[in-house]
């Protein structure tokens, strides 16, 4: 029924973009877990095979992907708490913008030291 012809993008605000980001990070984390379960399952095949696969992860490209992974998880975790509060705290809907600002603030607060430390490991050897 809704055969909406392509028009301009709906200009939603914090709520809509937090939902989009929550979806994107959620799907990203799902695909990571998919690969993660497969590679961890390799331990059952043989510990050597597991070590071999894990060793291939030690390169800068995967190092940067790990930044993305941690970034996605941190956002998804904090925004998930925000959504819980929106649904269960009676004043949640009224303070959703402030809570979204807090999510972004906490995200930056945790990501800055992590990225510095992580990338110095990845690129500093």
């Amino acid at each position: 029924m809704p055969k909406a012809p392509a028009g301009t993008l709906y200009r939603g605000r914090e709520g809509m973009w937090s939902w989009v980001a929550h979806r994107v990070t959620g799907i990203g984390i799902f695909f990571f877990l998919f690969a993660h379960i497969l590679d961890t399952a390799l331990v059952r095949v043989s510990p050597e095979a597991y070590n071999e696969v894990i060793a291939t992860y030690k390169n800068p490209i995967v190092g940067l992907m790990e930044v993305g992974l941690v970034g996605a998880i941190v956002f998804h975790a904090f925004n998930g708490l925000r959504i819980v509060l929106v649904d269960f705290w009676s004043k949640g809907p009224r303070y959703q913008k402030q809570m979204f600002a807090a999510v972004l603030g906490l995200w930056v607060l945790l990501m800055v030291p992590f990225v510095i430390r992580h990338l110095s490991h990845v690129f500093g050897g």
Binding site: G15, M16, S18, D87, P93
Partner: peptide, 9 residues
């Protein structure tokens, strides 16, 4: 409902 708040806005 995914609480996007588009409706409130």
């Amino acid at each position: 409902c995914r609480t996007t708040f588009n409706c409130t806005d």
